[in-house]
């Protein structure tokens, strides 16, 4: 298994990757303050040959991009070509589905970003490429960029909530999903996920309310959740 993206908090602090912001129960980490080449070289484990290989792959796949202040940007100005970017997103989707190889996927979506840095779909795809290798920090930066470009990009907003949950930032996840509901109350499973995140932060009243809403909208609630919630707190 690849090890790129393995950035434990201690490692992050030790190598001073960049700003570390705390939110809710967990942390929201920013992967880099530098250029892509700097990003590629920032390995917390430089002596591990596998880590070196993965950092090399990461550097290559993100060449031309910068991950700074929790956003993705292009290092050199480009001439926007939305049509080409859209086509490259389509190609990247195919690469992702067929090869299922994170650095190929990231590289393909990187090309779409470089073709038009204002194309939100390119960043959303880029995030999925990072998540194939569980690089939540990079994925979060890409998704924040996507929703900054299009605040009503529902899929990216849902995924941003998921990534924040993945980093134990349950309150952050709740906030993202609440914003999503404001835009799209029928977005699949959003109430179910809100219910579970609320349960983890011990807001049982919200957990039950969101569970009821999820049931009303026939969303997919993990069956094991119901008994855990009931065990933790009786229905108010």
């Amino acid at each position: 298994m690849n090890r790129a993206g393995y950035w434990p908090l201690a490692g992050l602090l030790a190598v001073a990757f960049g700003a570390l912001t705390l939110s809710g129960c967990g942390s929201s980490r920013q992967p880099s303050t530098g250029s892509a080449s700097q990003t590629g070289g920032l390995s917390p484990e430089p002596d591990d040959p596998k880590e070196q290989l993965d950092q090399q792959r990461l550097a290559e796949a993100t060449r031309g991009l910068s991950f700074q202040n929790g956003r993705v940007s292009v290092i050199k100005p480009v001439t926007k070509n939305r049509a080409r970017s859209v086509a490259l997103v389509s190609t990247a989707e195919e690469v992702t589905e067929t090869d299922n190889t994170w650095f190929k996927s990231v590289g393909a979506f990187r090309d779409a970003v470089l073709a038009d840095p204002t194309n939100p779909s390119a960043y959303e795809g880029l995030a999925r490429g990072f998540l194939m290798e569980q690089m939540t920090d990079y994925a979060e930066a890409a998704l924040r960029t996507a929703v900054a470009l299009d605040p009503k990009f529902n899929k990216a907003r849902f995924e941003l909530g998921t990534v924040r949950q993945m980093t134990s930032d349950f309150q952050g996840a709740v906030n993202e999903w609440k914003q999503l509901i404001a835009n799209a109350p029928d977005y699949p499973d959003v109430y179910a996920r809100l219910a579970i995140a609320s349960y983890y932060i011990h807001d049982y009243k919200a957990a039950y309310a969101n569970l009821d809403e999820a049931d009303r909208r026939m969303q997919s609630v993990p069956a094991q959740f119901r008994s855990l919630l009931k065990e933790a707190a009786p229905r108010p």
């Binding site: 298994m1 090890r3 993206g5 393995y6 434990p8 908090l9 201690a10 967990g26 998540l131 569980q134 690089m135 939540t136 998921t162 949950q165 993945m166 980093t167 134990s168 579970i196 983890y200 997919s220 993990p222 094991q224 959740f225 855990l228």
Partner: peptide, 23 residues
């Protein structure tokens, strides 16, 4: 989907004692 997880995380959850990967 044979089952849906309650929570998910990357290569390392922050829910364990110790500092090692647990995807």
């Amino acid at each position: 989907t044979a089952a849906s997880r309650l929570a998910t995380w990357g290569v390392q959850s922050l829910y364990i004692p110790g500092n090692f990967r647990n995807p």
